Computed example of a mutant assay.
Amino acid sequence: MTEAPAPVLKVCGATAPQDIEVLAAAGADRVGLWHGVPGGPADLPERELTALAAAARATGVLEPVLVTFLDDPDALAGAARRAGVTRLQLHAYQPPAFVRALRAALPDAVLIKVLHVRDGNCLERPLIGAYERAGTDLFLLDATAGDGRVGSTGLRLAESDVLALAERFTLPFWLAGGITPRSRADCAAVADHPRFCGIDVDTAARDGRGRFDADAVTALARAWRTARHPVPYPKEHP
């Protein structure tokens, strides 16, 4: 058993090369690239996904994560291969069978499944075990809006709800939803959890005009990279 790396900082929603430059210089570890998110403000056609993924890898410090609502595992696997992306975040309600098919198609990929929480209840709770058995590597816990919106809602999960949900599975997890540098102090028990391994942010990494802000990203990195845990990881740190 070895000491795990400091928690990962993933910033979601890059759409241009300058976004990649800002995030890499400011301390982000992962960049979320949207593809197959109909109507999403940061949704990228495959050509741009491929170009930005290459730009992220070229920084030597930033790894791309394909964030998607796609429900066709063959189409998603094909897009990931062509873009050279090995981390995929399933940010919708894809069933365990989808994860199993994707795992068969991409045996070496890191598969991140979002668990959606609304009013303290995890909508995928009955399927958590099935997601683990299907080949999920990492869960991302995120808040769902009352109107059903998922992703970049800015809504914060109660620490007690996160800790209770974490008892339902055995995998490492990331936390999303209304995260700021100041919220680190209010999430001490989550940050100290032995399987917590990162945060996923969007709005908190931007300025008032909606652009990625280096100071904001650096503040997030400094606030949340305070805990290391002696936990085993079956793959490279997600």
Rank of each mutant, 00 (worst) to 15 (best):
P5F: 05
V8Y: 04
A14T: 05
T15F: 03
P17M: 13
E21L: 01
A25C: 08
A26Q: 08
D29V: 00
G39P: 13
G40F: 03
A42D: 05
L44S: 06
L44K: 10
L44V: 12
R47E: 15
A51D: 13
A54Y: 12
A55I: 08
A55T: 09
L62C: 03
L62F: 12
F69S: 05
F69Y: 14
L70D: 14
D71Y: 06
A75K: 12
A80T: 10
R81G: 12
R81E: 14
A83L: 08
G84C: 05
Q89K: 04
Y93H: 14
P96L: 09
P96S: 10
A97I: 08
R103K: 07
A105T: 04
P107Q: 01
A109Y: 10
L111H: 01
L111D: 00
L115R: 02
H116F: 07
G120A: 04
N121F: 13
N121T: 13
R125P: 00
R125D: 07
P126I: 13
L127G: 00
A134G: 07
G135I: 07
L138M: 06
F139Q: 04
L141D: 02
A145F: 09
G146N: 09
D147H: 13
V150E: 03
V150N: 04
G154L: 13
A158W: 03
E159C: 06
D161G: 02
A166W: 02
L171E: 11
F173L: 11
W174L: 15
I179W: 11
C187G: 02
A188H: 08
D192R: 15
R195V: 09
C197D: 08
I199M: 02
I199T: 05
I199C: 00
V201G: 06
D202L: 05
A205K: 07
R206I: 09
R206F: 07
D207Y: 02
G208R: 11
R211G: 10
D213V: 03
A216M: 11
A216K: 14
A219N: 12
L220K: 00
A221P: 01
A221R: 14
A227M: 04
E236V: 00
E236Q: 06
E236G: 11
